[in-house]
Amino acid sequence: MTPAILFLEKQNASFTLHQYECTAQDDFGAHAAEQLQVPLEQVFKTLLTEGEQGAVVALVPSSGKVNLKRLAKAAGVKKLDMMPPAKAERLTGYKVGGISPFAQKKCLTTVVDNSARLHDRILVSGGKRGLSLGVTAELLASLLGAVIADIAE
C-alpha cells in the first residue's frame, strides 16, 4: 500500500490498480505503457518544476513533454524550470519513476494537460515503480484542486 492508494481509498475515489514489472532506468512512462499495453498518450508522467513562487506539479502524457511557459501561465507564476530529481524526491516523498500526484509530502499547485480529457481514464504513478493508477481527469483535478490546461507539446 502506498500513500497514494491510501489517500484515494480514504476519499472513496474510483480508481483502478495496474501493476507491472518495472525494469526501466528512465522513460518510465513509455515502459509502463508497453508493459500495460496501453497507448503512450494515456500514461501521464508527474513532473516537478520550480520557480521563485515555489514548486508546481505538471501531469503530461508520456508521449510528449511539458511546455514550461504554458505551465507557468496556467499556474499563475512568472517562470518555471525543471526541478532536479533528488529535490523532487525530497519534496514529494516518492522516488523518481514512482512519483505520484497523490499524497505528496506537501500540497503543491498541480496542472494537468487538457489531453487527459480525451481518455475515459488516464494512468498516473501509484507511488512506486511498477504501479499505476487509473483515474479520470475530472477526479484527478477535483482531488488535487488541479488546473486543467494545454501544457504539453
Rank of each mutant, 00 (worst) to 15 (best):
V38G: 02
F7Y: 15
G97C: 14
T49N: 06
K45W: 01
Q11V: 08
S63I: 02
L80A: 07
L108S: 07
E41D: 13
K106I: 05
G97M: 15
E21C: 08
G76R: 12
S132Q: 15
I148M: 10
A13T: 10
L144M: 13
K87M: 06
E21N: 11
A33Q: 09
N12F: 05
T46E: 12
Q11Y: 07
S14H: 08
E9H: 11
P39D: 01
G64T: 06
F7Q: 10
A13C: 13
L17K: 09
D150L: 01
H119A: 03
L108E: 05
A137C: 12
K95G: 03
T16K: 08
V135A: 04
D26G: 03
K10T: 07
A72E: 15
L80R: 00
K95R: 15
T109G: 03
L131D: 04
E21W: 10
A74Y: 05
G64N: 04
L80G: 05
D81A: 10
F44H: 01
S14I: 05
Q37A: 07
L140F: 11
A72T: 10
L108D: 04
G76P: 15
G126E: 11
V77M: 05
K95D: 13
A88Y: 07
Q19L: 07
L48H: 04
I5W: 08
V38I: 09
G130K: 11
P84Y: 13
L80W: 14
A146Y: 11
D120L: 09
K128G: 01
A33T: 07
T49I: 07
K10P: 02
V135E: 12
V135Q: 10
K73C: 04
Q104L: 13
L68R: 00
S132K: 14
G134Y: 08
H119G: 01
A58R: 04
G127C: 13
L133W: 03
D120Q: 14
N67P: 01
D113Q: 05
V57R: 01
L108N: 06
A152P: 00
L108V: 07
K95L: 15
A75V: 10
L6P: 00
M1H: 05
L80K: 01
V147L: 07
K69Q: 08
L17G: 00
V124K: 05
P39Q: 00
P3F: 14
L133V: 07
D26E: 06
L91G: 05
P85V: 11
G134Q: 12
G98M: 14
L139D: 15
F28E: 01
V147N: 08
L68I: 06
D113E: 12
A141Q: 08
G145L: 06
Q53F: 03
S62D: 01
E153P: 04
Q42A: 02
Q35V: 05
K87W: 07
Y94S: 06
Q37G: 00
H18S: 11
A24Y: 02
L36C: 03
M82D: 06
R129M: 12
A141N: 07
